[in-house]
Design a binder for these strands. Structure first.
Lengths: 220, 220
DNA sequence: ATTATATTTTAGGCTTACCTAAAAATAAAT
DNA sequence: ATTTATTTTTAGGTAAGCCTAAAATATAAT
């Protein structure tokens, strides 16, 4: 059995690779996990012994097939629990993270498969992130940042690139939720801020910083 | 915050006191928790420092009000999760224990209160054991062992004194579930085994050992 | 190419929760 | 009342996962 801590390292490595690093450095892991580089090195040796990562001194790490599979199972659990919290226990999307961080480490195949079924096999979590299936297969919907669109483009909001509660709360208060149709009405060249409408109605102004963290699927 | 391990010690002490010990000995705790007496002594010092237990060397322990409160919260979580597993995820009553042992240590007040609400504030868990409320108040239904009844007595099955899967599975296969009406048809003096009917119909034979572990509420 | 800077690893320590073996205290038996 | 047996505690050690400080390696800058 793998410890709570090992699972968190695997998940962190997965996430850093997912965010674009082709090899994960000791330091970026240390930052991500909130520990010191020396502690990371200790753990990397252990994970390497267990064949969860490819690791050579000073060269950074990648996940082995086995390690990736484990990471995906933790992510599956995390996202299913988030879905449970929002759908069944009335949590808001900015409140689920900390609890899901704990729940993702509960060990029981039956538990997670039944939970999946109970939730009706959701494809994504409350933030629009895809949920790996029982075999660890993950269907990534392709999306682009809202900030990349041109004037008069329309799109559907399908996810976020920033999961902080403050950002999520801001989106809530602006009426920007998964599934709304967004149309770009105006782009201010000066600061790249934009003016949009939600569902062909409500006009909203967004800074470039915000627009970069809203993921959408263009229409047509 | 209290560790997983501390919570398990408190729960174990509570349970041993509940089962009749007015003071819990180091050895009985060691047996219960599956560790060695020396390890227990270590932990007792820590729990005592934290004011969770009353402890004097060689004199055994009891819970302080604070310690009992914490124990009750863990028990509340355990039993609510068991209820969730059975009611929502189709677990059987003999399958829930191990998973609930993990889930009971998730820290989140909102989580547990919402879960309670989601389950409609259940009074008992799937084995008939009472669930402490949000304040830690516990309503104990008084019950007696089926083995104490006389011929022709009738009663309602409301709990078990043995939580092992093998016993629970046996009850299942015999049709003995929470809420069935049991009538004592015959008591065999020789070995104290009994013959009963379930819901005025199905006749069943039970050994004394089994009858001792079935908790009931006499009718009239 | 060498020096300076940044990153990573090693070395040695700490805490939690466990262990065994030996000592101390309590309880039981004569 | 002593001796014997049992229980409990102390003493000293281990593994996991963290730490700081120093050494080794890699990267960047002249």
């Amino acid at each position: 059995m793998n410890s709570y801590t090992e699972e968190n390292y695997l998940k962190a490595i997965y996430s850093l690779i997912d965010k674009g690093e082709n090899v994960v450095s000791t330091n970026s892991l240390a930052t991500k996990i909130n520990t010191k580089a020396a502690s990371v090195t200790d753990m990397l040796k252990k994970l390497s012994d267990k064949k969860f990562i490819n690791y050579q001194k000073y060269q950074g790490v990648t996940l082995t097939v086995l390690g990736e599979q484990l990471a995906l199972m933790v992510i599956r659990k995390h996202r299913l629990w988030e879905m449970f919290l929002v759908e069944k226990l009335d949590f808001k999307w900015d409140e689920v993270h900390d609890v899901a961080e704990q729940l993702e480490h509960i060990h029981s195949d039956k538990l997670i498969d039944q939970l999946d079924k109970f939730l009706n096999f959701p494809k994504t979590d409350p933030h629009g992130d895809p949920i790996p299936d029982a075999k660890g297969k993950l269907k990534v919907k392709k999306s682009i940042a809202l900030s990349k669109l041109k004037k008069n483009d329309t799109c559907i909001m399908i996810g976020v690139a920033d999961h902080s509660s403050s950002f999520l709360q801001f989106l809530d208060s602006s009426g920007i939720t998964l599934g709304v149709e967004i149309k770009i009405k105006k782009i201010i060249e000066f600061d790249a801020s934009i003016q949009i409408t939600l569902n062909k109605q409500l006009p909203v102004f967004l800074s470039h910083k915000v627009a970069k963290s809203i993921l959408v699927q263009p229409l047509l």
